[in-house]
Nucleic acid binder design. Structure first.
Lengths: 151, 151
DNA sequence: GTATATGCAAAATCTTTGCATTCCC
DNA sequence: GGGAATGCAAAGATTTTGCATATAC
């Protein structure tokens, strides 16, 4: 199963960073790998507390920040307050609807090249800054909202 | 003065969008044009309430959302909660320090071409989505934080 | 064994809302 | 004049903190 190796690779990254593998971190990681719904903190918490009682929001917050720091997930803006998250196994960017806030994954084969380009430009414009990753968001209107607004 | 015409052009955009020109909107717009410090809501409020008593946070929030909706400012993530804003007269992107959260403007001559490219890719990958603008952030370490972390 | 992570609940932040009043067009 | 914007304060969300307890390595 492909997901298992994604999971194993992620766990390896955690270990490389001397991060302890707790059950909470495992289930949150699994959730993020298996759900590409760009969940909010609360969505993750609600989904997991059923099977894993006495999980706390604080732990979910801690874990997500940790995962973001080491680059295996990225944070996305949420139209109505709060933020959302997305597992970042295959690098990609996001299209975000300005009207409803819907987030769509844009898988782009040359993302790595684009990422490299953006880091290059940044280093050229500001040699004092050492870039390590980039984040791209494209804003516009999703199909449903286009139709709604044209009525 | 260059800033005057930037201001006039922005006001024209507001009028095009049938947005009323209130004194509050004028001073907030002027502040954003003249300060490229990526201010938070509170920074703007604090700076303006001195000269403009009984300005309310609610109005600052409303105004910033409005300006963002019509695309004359963009919202940036803030490391420690909340968000920051930047006037978007000349299209550019941002370098953000992962360690201290510092935001640096990256003026890039071919930004428009890059923006166009990103919208093109998005449309190709998801024909149902109609893109209108893009946002690019490059993460890494600023000079100060590199030095700090290497000690 | 020890440093680290967790849960809990309270505190601190940040943002929105409702409504009476004011004001732009 | 009328619809829209504002200020205010309260409510609602979201996120962080402190500390005792539990646990990964």
């Amino acid at each position: 199963m492909e997901d298992t190796s994604v999971y194993d690779r992620s766990i390896a990254i955690l270990k490389q960073n001397h991060i302890r593998i707790t059950p909470q971190r495992q289930i949150i990681l699994k959730y993020l790998i298996n759900h590409h719904n760009h969940p909010s903190v609360e969505t993750i918490y609600k989904a997991l507390e059923k099977d894993f009682s006495n999980l706390s929001m604080a732990t979910v917050y801690n874990t997500l920040r940790l995962f973001e720091d080491i680059g295996i997930i990225i944070q996305l803006p949420n139209k109505d307050g709060g933020v959302r998250f997305d597992f970042f196994g295959t690098p990609h960017f996001h299209a975000i609807c300005e009207h409803c806030g819907k987030i769509i994954d844009i898988q782009y084969p040359n993302y790595n090249q684009l990422d490299h380009e953006l880091q290059d430009i940044t280093k050229k414009q500001d040699p004092d800054f050492t870039p390590s990753r980039s984040k791209v968001e494209v804003y516009g209107l999703c199909k449903q909202c286009q139709q709604k607004l044209n009525q």
